[in-house]
Amino acid sequence: MGCFSSKVARQFPGHEDPVALASQTAFSVSEVEALFELYKSISSSVVDDGLISKEEFQLALFKNRKKENLFANRIFELFDVKHKGVIDFSDFVRSLNVFHPNASLEDKIDFSFKLYDLDNTGFIERQEVKQMLIALLCESEMKLADETVEIILDKTFLDADVNRDGKIDKSEWENFVCRNPSLLKIMTLHYLRDITTTFPSFVFNSEVDEIAT
């Protein structure tokens, strides 16, 4: 097993022991191993270097490696926990963990806050929301007049920015999503519950002697 593990570690930089990863996340050991099957497939789709590049991430999401999408770019940046421009396996598991149906609400709120805090200032600022909104409206070919976008932003900040300082802080965001729970829908991926049945081949490539479920 030692030889196999070191070979895996060599081929997949950032690969951590599945038992350790399972102990730090909502995933079982079997689920971490099933995620590794998925990871192997995505990380070898363009360059077989054991890491997920932005291009490979885009290819997995859009079946098109050149597709640019501001929201997808932001998710890639947040998955790239070590800021290396690539997602290694431990980043992949820890990031997907936030989307697990059993992950804490606090983690989901925290991740969603970072998603919209494009410039990492610790606040969701009006111009960040506007930038994302305009980019996505263009991509979706939905035409809205500038005035309409401003009305939507005015209403949103009137509701969310309780202290009226022009930006949404973490506690205002918590309060806002509690009043608008549909905003957290994108933070839960139900497929993560069935990941072992989606990628059953993990059983043949298991690194652990006894699969803990």
């Binding site: 999408n69 909104l133 991509e139 939905m142 949103t156 905003l183 989606t198």
Partner: peptide, 26 residues
């Protein structure tokens, strides 16, 4: 639903153009 009746974040979710489910080949 009219866009103007949504808050900005709802509109972003609705126009994001993909789902992370796609990662699983779904």
């Amino acid at each position: 639903v009219k866009p103007v009746s949504m808050n900005a974040f709802e509109l972003i979710s609705k126009t994001q153009g993909f789902s992370l489910d796609n990662l699983f080949g779904k």
